[in-house]
Amino acid sequence: MNKELEHKFISEFQEHQKIIHKVCRIYTNNQEAHNDLFQEITIQLWKAYPKFRGDSKLSTWMYRIGLNTAITLYRKSKRTIKTQDFDTVLHRIKSTDYDNTEEEQLKLMYKAIHQLSDIDKGLIFLYLEDKNYKEISETLGISEVNARVKMNRIKTRLKTILNP
């Protein structure tokens, strides 16, 4: 592949790389696994890039490939299967931003998200990214109605975890 294309890809990717970090954040729970998935998604994006026509937004295209890689293509290596303490993932949240109960709630919610199925993780991820049901259904390849039904189920599930 030519250098010019490579340069263009890296520059554009650099600008939008947060999307991929966020996908990894939902699907992995330790740094090593995060990096591993990040690498695989980046490779998949680069492989698909020559065919990217620009008829959709680059970010939309990245969401799709990111999720497809996380749900379908990615093979968890042995070392990433081991479970990790979820608390470590939340170290960034400063206690001044939230009171104790809120912090506790968030911790529980992230923990619950990590226990969801791959598909449900994808749905909640797109919800957190403010995607509408049309986009969600187009990314996952399910009908809008089903996306809505499934999302409501996940929301209820998360809420019951917090208010048993």
């Binding site: 695989e40 680069w46 890689t69 990615y74 290596s77």
Partner: peptide, 15 residues
């Protein structure tokens, strides 16, 4: 830029 450059030259291990 360089870190991304390195990443895209790694081998995929997709299923």
């Amino acid at each position: 830029y360089n870190e991304i450059y390195k990443l895209i030259h790694k081998k995929s291990s997709s299923i």
